[in-house]
């Protein structure tokens, strides 16, 4: 029972007890798209971009434990369109101006758009009013770009041991807030915190280091996100 087999898109894959579908797939060189999942953090299941079907039922691969004989579908048209829809919704419900964003080229949301072949979202842009918090001397918070993946919240709590961030509000009003006050400058956030690096988009940025990598040499300029897993490279 400690070692068993599941199938992903018809291919037999070894899995260990306690492994999630996403972890088992990754060990076999199969990439399942994800945004909120980050190695070193507890699985969160927030963004749903890693949705697969397991024995016919949709579930998030980052939280669903693999089970003996489980039949996982990762690359069906239905699953791919489901994920693409989710990523398109992330693009329209925030203000994602890639052309002047410092994270462009290294942004996981943008890279997901490229990988999924999104030329334009199918939904109307919402242009919500969101705030920028530039109070901290070394860190910029731009809520326009936030996709509510909770990576900063979880990293600050579980890795940095600080609890700088948390969610407030519900539904469309949900946002990341600074726990100790209204501004990041009033918290004990530090530029060396792992939480700052954890942001997949340009919502949390170190100041004064933008555009350091030339266009053409950035993380996702040449090869799609996930190709390091598919090519068996250590990420």
């Amino acid at each position: 029972m400690s070692q068993f087999t599941i199938t992903i898109d018809g291919r037999e894959v070894e899995a260990k007890a306690g492994q999630t579908i996403l972890e088992a797939a990754e060990e076999a060189g199969i990439y399942i798209p994800r945004l909120c999942h980050k190695p070193g953090l507890e699985p969160f299941g927030g963004c749903r971009v890693c949705t697969v079907t397991a024995n016919g039922r949709p579930c998030s691969a980052c939280t669903q434990p693999a089970a003996p004989g489980m039949i996982v579908m990762n690359e069906t048209e239905q699953v791919k369109d489901f994920r693409k829809t989710l990523v398109e919704m992330m693009f329209v419900e925030g203000n994602h101006f890639c052309m002047f964003c410092e994270k462009s080229g290294n942004c996981e949301l943008q890279a997901m758009g490229y990988r999924m072949g999104i030329d334009v979202p199918r939904f109307p842009f919402l242009f919500p009013k969101r705030n920028v918090d530039a109070s901290h001397p070394d860190i910029l918070v731009d809520h326009n770009r936030c996709i509510l993946c909770a990576r900063c919240i979880r990293t600050s709590r579980d890795v940095d041991g600080k609890q700088v961030f948390d969610f407030v509000g519900r539904g469309a009003n949900k946002r990341v807030a600074v726990r100790s006050g209204t501004r990041l400058a009033d918290s004990d956030a530090d530029v060396s915190d792992a939480a700052v690096e954890a942001c997949p988009v340009g919502a949390l940025l170190k100041k004064r280091v933008g555009y350091a990598t030339p266009i053409g040499e950035r993380l996702y300029d040449k090869a799609p996100i996930g190709s390091e897993i598919e090519n068996g490279e250590e990420s």
């Binding site: 462009s104 943008q110 266009i215």
Partner: peptide, 8 residues
């Protein structure tokens, strides 16, 4: 091809 579609 992948390299030709960019948002920036």
């Amino acid at each position: 091809p992948y390299q030709l579609i960019k948002y920036d």
